[in-house]
């Protein structure tokens, strides 16, 4: 009675029906849609807001300002945008730490 030899294990990549991580990531993140890209966009916006506030501050200091409220509003917007970015960053770091603490 012949016993069939043990066959080699099929290579992992050939396992049917298992979407690779790469494909799943690509499906979710279109161009500029990933979390990293969003954070970069948010930082760019923050930079633009702060530049506006800086320019108006310079104008206020050099006597070129037309309106007191213009500068105060730009400064408030810059401060709120900074707080928002920091809040989002804190949440992201918190999530990352949660994942790192996961028991595998």
């Amino acid at each position: 009675m012949a016993i069939a030899p043990i066959a080699g294990v099929a290579s992992l990549g050939q396992l049917a029906g298992t979407p690779s991580i790469d494909a799943a990531t690509k499906a979710k993140s279109g161009p500029g849609d990933g979390f990293g890209a969003q954070i970069t966009n948010a930082l760019d916006n923050l930079q633009a807001t702060q530049n506006t506030a800086d320019n108006l501050a310079l104008k206020a200091a050099t006597g070129g300002a037309q309106d007191v409220s213009d500068y105060m509003i730009a400064a408030t917007q810059a401060s709120l945008a900074t707080e928002l970015t920091v809040a989002v960053r804190n949440k992201a770091v918190e999530s990352f730490n949660d994942i790192m603490r996961m028991n595998i």
Partner: peptide, 12 residues
């Protein structure tokens, strides 16, 4: 994103 500030700023 902070549109109210711009709107009220126009009022100011």
């Amino acid at each position: 994103i902070f549109g109210i500030l711009d709107t009220s700023g126009s009022g100011l």
